[in-house]
């Protein structure tokens, strides 16, 4: 759900400035979506989206049996990988013809396209929750409490980050899954080019590029843990429409007999995270990650760097 906030200027401007100074100012969504004189970008991007979707659907759903469970590869996974590969900095840098179809202009325009392409999916999610509304309401307490589970990032990832030698970056990187609301909050609290801000930005970028791929694989594999598919479905709602879709879509394909319920639970949880996520970061995540950092850094932090730590 938070994907569509990607183009919210207050988040993106600071982020772009922090990363690259030489870039021209970002166009607003309205400017990007203006067809006048930009028709060829729309045409090329639409055709690219069509061709990638057709290829992905042609490959279809692929299942692989591993010893520990089944990996389900959905067409959306092929679509994101192909989409990523055809951009100017990857295959486009080798193949000139490709660069003339997908240039940075089309890459820029793709952002607003994602926000709009998500809406039909939003409608479909609504049609999954509606008929199951009674069960969803009954599971209300579980929905609310599992939101606290998102703090798991701090308990699991913070020690790892410290062991790897990160310092205050670790606080930003592990405070939450670092979607747009977190980026906004951390940017405001610490500044986006501070160590904390850099950490948040790192996890954010990783999530943007690899999130759907990772959760697309984890969604189906997680069944092997023995956790109930409905609990896993709730866990898939993390505040990102595309990650939730990847996680719940592959989970639903792995447990087809509960498919509708899984998608309904995931969509509900994601909607809830959209509402609670921001407050959870401000009132729980940031205090907790700082508290844990104080305790864990002296134990796990790299000793030779101790002088540099605040």
């Amino acid at each position: 759900m938070a994907d569509e906030k990607e183009k919210r200027p207050e988040v993106n401007e600071g982020q772009e400035k922090a990363m690259t100074d030489e870039k021209p100012p970002e166009k607003s969504e309205k400017e990007l979506l203006n067809f006048k004189g930009r028709g060829k970008f729309f045409l090329k991007l639409s055709l690219a989206g069509l061709v990638i979707s057709m290829i992905s659907e042609f490959i279809g759903i692929q299942r692989f049996e591993l010893g520990i469970g089944t990996i389900v590869l959905l067409p959306m996974l092929f679509a994101v990988v192909i989409g990523l590969l055809v951009t100017p900095d990857l295959l486009g840098s080798k193949i000139k013809a490709l660069r003339s179809v997908i240039s940075m202009d089309e890459v820029e325009l793709a952002g607003p396209f994602v926000m709009l392409a998500l809406l039909p999916l939003g409608v479909k999610y609504g049609t999954l929750v509606g008929p199951n509304i009674v069960q969803v309401v009954q599971a209300g307490p579980a929905f609310l409490l599992q939101e606290l589970g998102n703090l798991g990032t701090i308990f699991i990832a913070l020690p790892i980050a410290l062991l790897l030698g990160m310092k205050r970056e670790a606080v930003g990187a592990t405070v939450s899954i670092c979607r747009e609301p977190t980026l906004g909050v951390m940017g405001e609290r610490y500044g986006i080019s501070s160590p904390e801000g850099t950490g948040t930005l790192g996890t954010y970028l990783m999530g943007t590029v690899f999130g759907t791929i990772f959760f697309g694989l984890l969604g189906s594999l997680s069944v092997a843990t023995g956790l109930h598919p409905l609990a896993l479905a709730m866990a898939g709602g993390m505040g990102s429409g595309s990650m939730m879709t990847a996680a719940s879509g592959s989970l639903a394909a792995a447990v087809p007999e509960m498919s509708d319920q899984i998608l309904a639970y995931a969509a509900t949880s994601n909607m809830l995270t959209g509402v609670t996520g921001l407050y959870s970061v401000i009132f729980l995540g940031i205090p907790l990650v700082n508290f844990m950092y104080k305790i864990l850094y002296p134990i796990l932090g790299k000793k030779e760097n101790k002088g540099g730590a605040k």
């Binding site: 990638i52 979707s53 992905s56 959905l74 959306m76 990988v81 192909i82 759907t212 595309s242 990847a246």
Partner: peptide
């Protein structure tokens, strides 16, 4: 989902 992820990529 395929077009969303194609554009997202």
């Amino acid at each position: 989902t395929a077009p969303i992820l194609a554009f997202a990529g």
